[in-house]
Every structure is written in structure tokens, then in C-alpha cells.
Write a protein that binds this DNA or RNA. Sequence first.
RNA 1: GGAUCUUUGGCAGAGUUGGUCGAAUGCACCGGUCUUGAAAACCGGCGAGGGUUACACCUCCCAGAGUUCGAAUCUCUGAGGGUCCA
Length: 420
Amino acid sequence: MIDLKLLQKDFEGLSTSLMRKGVSETLLNDLKEKNETLKIAKAAFEELQAIRNAMSKEFGVYKREGKDINELKARIEANNVKVDAALEVQREAQIDLETLAMTVPNMPDDSVPDGADENENIEMKKVLTPKAFDFKPKEHWELAEENGWIDFERGAKLSGSRFSVSYDMGAKLERALINFMLDFNAKRGYHEVSVPHMVNRTALEGTGQLPKFENDLYKIEGQDMFMIPTGEVPLTNLFQGEIIPYEQLPIKMTGYTSCYRKEAGAAGRDTRGMIRQHQFHKVELVCITKSETSDTIFNEMIECASDILTALELPHRLMQLCTGDLGFGAAKTVDIEVWLPGQDQYREISSISNTRDFQARRAKIRYKDKETKKNTFVNTLNGSSLAVGRTLVAIMENNQNADGSIDIPEVLKPYLNMGA
RNA sequence: GGAUCUUUGGCAGAGUUGGUCGAAUGCACCGGUCUUGAAAACCGGCGAGGGUUACACCUCCCAGAGUUCGAAUCUCUGAGGGUCCA
């Protein structure tokens, strides 16, 4: 949620910033107006309420002193009619404003470049050089099926398209990658956390998936529960509604979860293979911190994810997302894209975002600031480190040999009982 | 699934014959006295959100609805937690 106080204090700055993210001027004016309406409605209600409180107090005194109550009672009742009406007005104004405000995305950082879509993202750097093949590298689904690692047909039989089944080394590699990534992150100071894969509505509102993106989520029938689209949701919401002791910050967490996405808007894209599945494994990083240190931590997270790829000897590049490609809650995002020789292109394998206090404001995650002594919203950051399925894809495509066999990265061998 | 108990400020924990309760007390925290310094001791402050130049004032004792002139306190529903039963 954006800071509604900015509507009064710095409407200019707020709208300039949000318009970069494609929010219309009409909507912003509407928002401002609704905020005004609420303010007025609130003042009216509070005044009447103050009268009621005073008269009720008086009522108690009258009773104790045995005075006649009838006249006062009539006055109170008359006032109460007004109170009820004013409350109703205030309520409507409140809901009006909130409904709208919850759909407004976060403001991008000033440093984020303008741009319409992913084509205008900016490459920050490349790590490792793609190796040259003396044969035409295959795409991962071909390799996966040849090696008997992944079975897309039976996945479809069980659950439909965009599901797959892994066997033998395919399955083992998934497991090895998860463990390797968790251990790697832990060495960088992230505490391992294991969380539920189903969460309630409040959690999803906290991180910004709801109310706007309900169509992308799998909902549990008959309950107000959803399958998580990313581990970011439970990890961040662990602290929902809490005031975190100052000394505990920053909180650095890593966790493995499956992720469940309808991929509603992705019809026709990546229909083959395991690039875009309804269910996929991911190891996530989430940090909760003060605003002063959130940039530092942001960079550490990027480095961590990038270093995992380096350890796996996978060429990749860092992309700074432009305003048009920035997600709903993000103030700033860096994507890591891994080289896929079979596809002859870089593909996203990690996305690291700083949401500043956008999620914190929604989820009410605060800490008491040492200097100002005020309860202050934390900054929350999240990032994949890494998407497991896509890492497996990258290993297959980068490590393939002419005969279709695939070399196992050295760092994974201990996890596969293969010795180093 | 049934029964029963429970849900209070950062934490712990009072507060059920409805009003003077936004709420005792302890811990934690902040400021001070003392001390070479620290600890202890003592004194003072200390829930949150909105509002105001500052006050006033409003809201919040899990959530929602109700009873009442008035609810943390009574009733109902829901959610979370405990215990017993199935």
C-alpha cells in the first residue's frame, strides 16, 4: 500500500512517480478526492461521537444523583440517530478509499529507468561466457526425455498441461539443487525456514497478490485459503502485525517451497518443457530490514543468487528492470537471466525485489526506531535463489554433450553421493 | 466432527454486580540521581492509529453483528489457541 499521507503532503511527487508505472492521472485524482471525502466524513462523525460520549457520561452522573433522566435520554437518542448516519457515511468513504488504494502499485525508485516493457530493461553485467558448442545444442525437453529424467506426458495425464514428472537423476537433481541452494544461502547468513504452502487471504493481501491478482492463484474450494504462488508470501507474512524488536533486524531468511500458479495470462508461452509450470520448486530469500540498510541487503541478495549460478558454472546476466516491467509491489527489481544454449537466449531464473515499505504497510510489519522512538514500517525484500526447475533446465542445456549425455556440476556431486 | 475453556499494550498478566478503564502490576525500554565507569538501588517517563501549530477530540482490549443512554466487561456468529471426546 502506498502512503496515503503523501496524497496530502506531496501529491505532485506521488503522482509523478506512480505515473511512471502506468497509473493514470484520473485514478490518482480519484484517490486524492476519496481521501478528502473520508477526512471530512471522519471529522463529522467524530464530532457527533464526542457529544454522545459526553452525554452518556452525564447520564451516569444523573443516575447516581437520582435526577430525572428522561429529558437527557431524549437528547441522546436524537443525537444517536445522527451518529449512526455519520458512521455509515464514514464507513462507505473508508471502504471506497481502501478498495482503490489496495489496487495501486508501489512507487518505483527514482533510479529505476523508464521503459514500456521487458525490452527496455538494462543489462548491468554478464557473468561467465557461454561456451561454444561444436554441435547444435538441444533444448532441454528433448534432453530430459532422452535421458529419461522428465516425463511431460504422464504429468499431463495426472494433472494437465504444464505439469511434469521427474525420474531418477532428474528427480535426484531437483532434490540436490534444493539442498545445495539452501546450504549456500545459509552460509550467507540466511536462516532456513520451512513454511506452509497454503495461506489465508490476509497473508496474500499483505504481500500484494490480493486483491488484484486473485485470478492467478489456486484457491481452496470452500475455504478462504490459497496455494502460495511464491515462498515470499508465507516468509514475509511471518511477521504480519508484529512490532519487531530493533536488535532483531535485519531478519534474513531462506526457505524452499513449491509454488503454484495458474499462469492465466501466459497462454501459448513456453508451452513445452518446464520453463513455465503450474507447480514448481523454488528456494526463496526474504529479508526484513530498516530502510537505511535495505539497499545493501538488496545487493547482497543479488550477489548470493548470482554466486549460486557461478558455483554451478552457469553463464548469466543481471538485468535492471525498467518501470514497465516492474511488479506490483516492487520499488526496484533486478532479474538474473541464465544462458540457455538450446534456446539461444537468456531466460529469467531469479527476480530480486526491494518493496521498501509497501508490503510492510499492508502487512503492518514495524519496528520501534531507536532515534525517533516511533514505530516505523520495515523494508521487505524478496528474491529467488533460485528457481529450481529452471536451474535444472540450464544445467541440461549448458552441460550437454554431443551424444546427449549431461555433465553433473562438480558442486552438486556431494549431494548426489557421487563424490567430488 | 462434538463438548468445554481461552484471545487484553513489545512480552507477561490483572480487570465479568456494564459508567470514574485505554486499562492495575511485573519485565523490557527511555531519561535522571548515585558511581571513576558499569551494575544494583531510587525517582520519572513509557500501548497503537488518526487528528491538532499545540491542546481538545475520535478510534482500537482477536474479527463481525447485537443488547444498552453507555461494553474490554452481557448475547450471537466467525477466526486463532488449549483441553477432553469421537
